[in-house]
Design a binder for these strands. Structure first.
Lengths: 211, 211
DNA sequence: TTGCATACTGTTCAAATGGACAGTATATTT
DNA sequence: AAATATACTGTCCATTTGAACAGTATGCAA
């Protein structure tokens, strides 16, 4: 076991602490954790806490009741530190404006920060079926990390005629193309003079069924 | 003094609690508050807390260490929304256990509640490609609403051999089938005696690329 | 003056809680 | 087979902590 990875049990304990804390406003006691998991000995929990502390995920304040301090990385997962409001949701894109400009922000989407880590994220709704081939459907919300340049092979958000569409950034024999993941669409070939606005790189998808 | 306004002292106490809490991750004890204000008696703080509670700004949880719950109005100023906790994330399914039993919970996933409304939600990771046809890929996290019975046409989570898989619930000529959204898979025909455990109904998908 | 609410001190007790000691069990690695 | 790490049970103790009882003081309104 890598020194910085938690075991399944330890992970469950951490999750419980986080959820208890966000529900009650303070961390659980050792005995409350034991009760939640059905442990008959508080000491078992202490052992877990010690190991979790050694791996740097929490800090135990000796002698203090409920003295479990969540370390920054986990706290971020809990309510997003800077972005507790979620990441900006971009409805439609006003021509000429940077994509995440206030003008474009139509709301905020809460993300799970333990899944979507890091900064510079935003969300937008995809129109069209050009990415059906990789399981992205019309109406899906995609999570994007801001980025103005694309690496070959990456799936990026490009702004075409005020609409955000996803395309795979391809370089073949020195020629740069934007390729849809759908055989019904043809590649868009970029001639060197032609510039297209890259807004960011695809990092996730959120889809809602019904309603 | 209006019944819903705090006195200057009470306000100082409240703001100390808030700042202590955001700094340490848990509320202070009565004695810690006393020490911070130079009070020589813990009872003075208790009196303050009682009055603050009467005015509705906090709630005291009797007998609990650091049992000071900040009421919604104050908490809102501190970190935005009310304590939304995530939905349980089910890693693998222990045979014979209800799917959301604590044994199965591997963590919690934060959802955007304006997208995924209502209760009874949980999340699990999908294995296999049986639902490729509707844009759900191997490894995707699906959001599911708990439900033990399926309506014809619904996509439901069924537990087969300890794995959660998605299938469309079909009724054709009175015969009930579970259909994969992938031509490579054949329908599973349920004879009346044969029972399969329905865990819930598909309401969403979350996918993460890279990492 | 007589209440009455707020703002304190001082003390004591019982419950809540952290934390130590002493084990058992079971994998996995060496 | 031995060593090691994780995952537990069970018990006990000292501290932390909430909470009660018994006061004092002060400003304010009836």
């Amino acid at each position: 076991m890598s020194p910085y990875e938690l075991t399944a049990q330890q992970q469950r304990v951490v999750s419980y602490i986080l959820s208890y804390r966000s529900q009650n406003g303070f961390p659980p006691t050792v005995r409350e954790i034991a009760a939640a998991f059905g442990y008959r000995s508080p000491n078992n929990v202490r052992q877990h806490l010690r190991l979790i502390e050694q791996k740097g995920f929490i800090r135990l304040l000796p002698g203090k009741a409920r003295g479990i301090e969540i370390s920054a990385s986990l706290a971020a997962g809990e309510y997003g530190e800077e972005g507790e409001r979620g990441v900006p949701f971009i409805g439609s894109v006003a021509a000429g404006k940077p994509i995440t400009a206030i003008e474009n922000v139509d709301g905020y989407v809460t993300l799970d920060r333990s899944i979507f880590k890091g900064g510079g994220l935003f969300a937008l709704r995809i129109k069209g079926d050009s990415m059906n081939g990789m399981g992205i459907l019309n109406g899906d919300i995609v999570v994007v990390r801001k980025k103005s340049q694309a690496e070959p092979g990456e799936v990026v958000v490009v702004i075409i005629d005020g609409d955000a569409t996803l395309k795979r950034f391809i370089r073949e024999n020195g020629i740069i193309k934007l390729r849809a993941e759908n055989p019904a669409y043809e590649d868009i070939v970029l001639d060197p003079g032609n510039s297209i606005q890259v807004a960011g790189k695809l990092v996730g998808v959120i889809r809602k069924y019904g309603g």
